[in-house]
Design a protein around this nucleic acid. Structure first.
Length: 447
RNA sequence: GUGGGUAUAGCUUAGUUGGUUAAAGCGCCAGUUUGUGGCACUGGAGACCGUCGGUUCGAAUCCGACUAUCCACCCCA
């Protein structure tokens, strides 16, 4: 039974009373991306496993232990995407988008999958707002994409998010840096933690990231990547900073930032929060000039980021952000008797065609229960429809907020409901005169 | 994969040193009002007390294992 009624570990349902929040965030993402000239790309949730092995990097944790990989019935090895960039690059190459006007500016809103132990801000299925800018190698591209994320956060009214940037250079400068780093840490071989000893051999840059007090203390005085940047990479980084300064985007240079995906080169950055637990990176990205060639294309520079929607939502709730309320029900039609029930459905259809949000009873409840329901869903107006109303053609329209009822004929009501509620919202029925809208004749008494 | 916390109705929780029909608030349904919501009052439905096993005359309560969940490490969005 538990299998039937329990969601899979590390997954989350978004229920109807919460979904408007994530919809708001997604709408903000589309809006912001659009203003920067980024257009949406949708790619499959699954790809050939090789794509991620090559694209994300064989040595990364993501590929080594976190992928959802399975064999399909045709014997192919398939993997649920653990991130968005590899698939976007694949589609970019497959459809020859490099022949279109460059840069190709792409955004996506998608789910990603990683087999990890869930914790605060970390799910096995999570959602990303991703940006990829293909074919833009200038420092202005780095700055533009970073400013897009900045603008997005700004739009949502988020503060307390710090931008940290770094440059990890090109493969050429990294070679020298690795050498220097190894030499440095080897002096402390006796003190480093076990995992760091391992890192010393495989990827000494990761030691910079270690949380153990001993290692991080040693790492503090380690040589930084920035000191080892070649002239081109150095100039590039300096230029990026100038652009950010000019856009008044504040940042701190954090030489400790080492991104976990192999494809990054030069500029890397993170937007970090300290309000949502240990997994504080809400947005992370950078330049990946080698990836497109690595995946079989002509060499082409690129820059992008991934932004975690669940973490963002967590952050917004921690900050008490207000989300725009979803639309309220304009009209609830409470009906009694078969004739009225049928009439209610017909009225609802007509008003919905005019773009109004209308509901009627589909449970077969009594009038009182229907009124209760109308109240619960926050209906703005209620129309009671029974044998009397059908017979006489006279109805009362109830404003659920004030409780006022207004008498009118059914046909006037159906013809003018939209105008009526606008007028009512502006002034209330009580004060309605004969100005503008010609509604005087249908607004009999109020009570 | 490794640690630590937690597990009682849809939700939030109470449950005294093991002792009869496991309690409350919110929510849900209905009634008080033969055709009118919110407020109040009354009633109702809803819990194999996470699962399995053990100790005991007797277990929601003690013990063990498992599972789930939360948090942290690793790593990342």
């Amino acid at each position: 039974m538990a299998l039937l009624t329990n969601a899979i570990k590390g997954t989350q349902d978004t229920l109807p009373n919460e979904s408007y929040k994530i919809q708001y965030i997604e709408a903000a993402a589309r809006e912001t991306a659009g203003n920067f000239g980024f257009r949406e790309m949708r790619t499959p949730v699954f790809e050939h496993t090789e794509l991620f092995q090559r694209g994300v990097g064989e040595t990364t944790d993501v590929v080594q232990k976190e992928m959802y990989t399975f064999e399909d019935k045709g014997g192919r090895s398939i993997t649920l995407r653990p991130e968005g960039t590899a698939g976007a690059v694949r589609a970019f190459l497959e459809h020859g988008l490099f022949n279109e006007a460059l840069p190709q500016k792409i955004f996506y809103l998608t789910s990603c999958y990683r087999y990890e132990k869930p914790q605060a801000g970390r799910l096995r299925e999570f959602h990303q707002f991703g940006i990829e800018c293909f074919g833009a190698g200038a420092p202005s591209a780095d700055a533009e994409v970073i400013s897009l994320a900045h603008e997005f956060f700004n739009f949502l009214g988020i503060d307390n998010l710090s931008l940290e940037i770094n440059s990890i250079g090109c493969p050429e400068c990294r070679k020298n840096y690795h050498k220097a780093l190894k030499e440095y840490f080897e002096q402390y071989k006796g003190e480093l933690c076990e995992t760091c000893l391992d890192r010393l051999e495989r990827n000494p840059m990761r030691i910079l990231d270690c949380k153990s007090p001993v290692c991080s203390k040693i790492a503090k005085n380690a040589p930084t990547v920035i000191e080892f940047l070649c002239e081109d990479c150095h100039n590039h980084f300096e230029s990026v900073k100038k652009y950010l300064d000019a856009m008044e985007i504040s940042y701190t240079v954090n030489p400790q930032i080492v991104r976990g995906l192999d494809y990054y080169t030069r500029t890397v950055f993170e937007f970090v929060s300290n309000e949502i637990g240990a997994q504080g990176t809400v947005c992370g990205g950078g330049r990946y000039d080698g990836l497109i060639a690595e995946m079989g294309g002509q060499p082409l520079p690129a820059f992008g980021f991934g932004l975690g929607l669940e973490r963002l939502l967590l952050l917004m709730e921690a900050q008490g952000s207000v989300f725009p309320e979803p639309k309220k029900c304009d009209l609830y039609i409470a009906s009694m008797g078969e004739n009225a029930n049928i009439k209610a459905s017909a009225i609802a259809k007509d008003l919905r065609n005019e773009g109004l949000y209308v509901q009627f009873d589909t449970v077969g409840r009594g009038l009182k229960a229907q009124m209760k329901y109308a109240n619960k869903i926050g209906a703005l107006y209620t129309l009671v429809l029974g044998d009397n109303e059908i017979e006489t053609g006279n109805i009362k329209l109830k404003n659920m907020e004030t409780g006022n009822e207004t008498e009118m004929t059914l046909s006037d009501f159906t013809d003018n409901f939209q105008a009526l509620i606008i007028k009512d919202a502006m002034s209330g029925f009580d004060s309605l005169g004969i100005d503008g809208l010609d509604l005087g004749s249908i607004l009999g008494g109020t009570n």
